[in-house]
């Protein structure tokens, strides 16, 4: 686990969004809207962060009956610490998180 971090701007954008309300579970589509990332970019990042234990995912029943269950995601405690460590210094740089929607 001691390997050097390679974190992209897109990963930072996702972590920054999740850091705003770290306890909230979010759907993939919600994350796409909040981060402005396309699904082709978002899912590989989600897979990578979940594999590393920075995000946790679980299935939730859909609100509308008849719809299939959906995956939801939130930061783990390790992910929260990691995001705080990575994102806070980035925030000091102007435009570093440009594109991340509020």
């Amino acid at each position: 686990m001691g390997r050097k971090l390679i974190h992209s701007r897109q990963t930072d954008r996702l972590l920054a969004v999740m850091l705003k309300e770290p306890l909230v579970w979010r759907h993939g589509y919600t994350l796409m809207k909040q981060t402005g990332l396309q699904s082709g970019t978002l899912y590989p990042i989600l897979v990578r962060l979940c594999d590393q234990g920075l995000l946790e995912a679980e299935w939730r029943e859909a609100e509308n009956s008849g719809k299939p269950p959906r995956h939801v995601y939130r930061l783990t405690s390790a992910g929260l610490a990691f995001a705080r460590e990575q994102i806070v210094p980035v925030r000091r740089k102007p435009d570093a998180l440009q594109g991340a929607k509020a």
Binding site: G28, Y29, S39, G40, T41, P68
Partner: peptide, 30 residues
Amino acid sequence: AAMQNELEAIEDDRVALNWAIGCVIAGYKE
């Protein structure tokens, strides 16, 4: 399945198509 089920929650067909195209790209990347 996570990507596929998410499609069902997207009401707008245009957005759904974009979502699906992105998921194909994500699938091949992985």
